[in-house]
Design a protein around this nucleic acid. Sequence first.
DNA 1: AAATCCACCAACCGCTATAAT
DNA 2: CATTATAGCGGTTGGTGGATT
Length: 331
Amino acid sequence: MGRVPCCDKDGVKKGPWTPEEDQLLVQYIQKHGLGCWRSLPKNAGLLRCGKSCRLRWTNYLRPDIKRGPFSPAEEATIVHLHGMLGNNPSKTVSVERSLYGDKPDLGYKRFLLILPDIHELWAYMASQLPGRTDNEIKNFWNTHLKKRLTSIGPKLQISQSSSSSEPINIKCKSPSARHMVQWESARVEAEARLSKQSLLVKPTSTAKSHPDIFLQLWKSEVGETFRIIEGKDGKTCESLVSDTPPAIKNESVFLADTVSPKPFKTNTFIDTTQEQEDTCKPNEDMMTVSDSIGSNEFADSTDTELKLLLDFPGGNDLEFIGEESEFFQLP
DNA sequence: AAATCCACCAACCGCTATAAT
DNA sequence: CATTATAGCGGTTGGTGGATT
């Protein structure tokens, strides 16, 4: 029963590929096209397993791969997506909303507008950066961007007193950097809270089968801050969603303008003491809400050192997303 | 000049979902 | 339906080359 083995493990070469092996692989694929990786090594005269051939082709030999350094725009995209999504592979967004019993409302759909349908982070980033592979992006993040973000950490002025119970004061001049830090803080915090709650609350069958962390986020305080946002004209988010398909890009940009400032303030204080005490009060606001930031504030960026990494043309955090229509497909 | 350190990145590993038998 | 291979993913490792001591 089942399939025959893909290749016998004995006699399979490992390690770096030689130019001769590359040539054999490329020539074979050019002649026969992409097909069964299992039979490819034998047919191409390679002493490699099919998996190794596939990886070599996917990550290095593919003709549409863009080599060379990442452009600032590519860097910014990676940083921004990583800031929004993190790199936890468990953050799977399911499109099968019917699984959840309670039907998500329109506000939730809007919430998801800025959270693309991610199944795999690096693969998704690769899909947003034509010519780049997930492996390349992952390497670039691990060796360059993570380090740079760490090194500029002090410039974000995320100060924390000696007591861990003191509030974390985020003072970041760049609106986009602020937005990213704020979102990441909220996301991490919400995850921590959900994690704590999952330990405190008896697991139910429905809770166990709740794989969508974004739905949980939406139902948490973070989502709350999105749900209760008032638009510029005083309407709520939900009320802004029409039944007819909107001009997605414009609406989403507007969403970014209205949503990002409201839940957070310029100096966002996240009271960790309060957080520890409030783990069983999911409905209380955990964010200090202020109206001190509006879309106008996006014009006052002076944080040039962060700008390259974190900002986008036009000063709108999510404007770059507008270039990719895939972002705005409703789940 | 030799030894050591460090950054980079290709390749591997282990895992999961899906497809084939 | 059960079993097993395959494809594809994120995380990690290890070789290589340049920089520093």
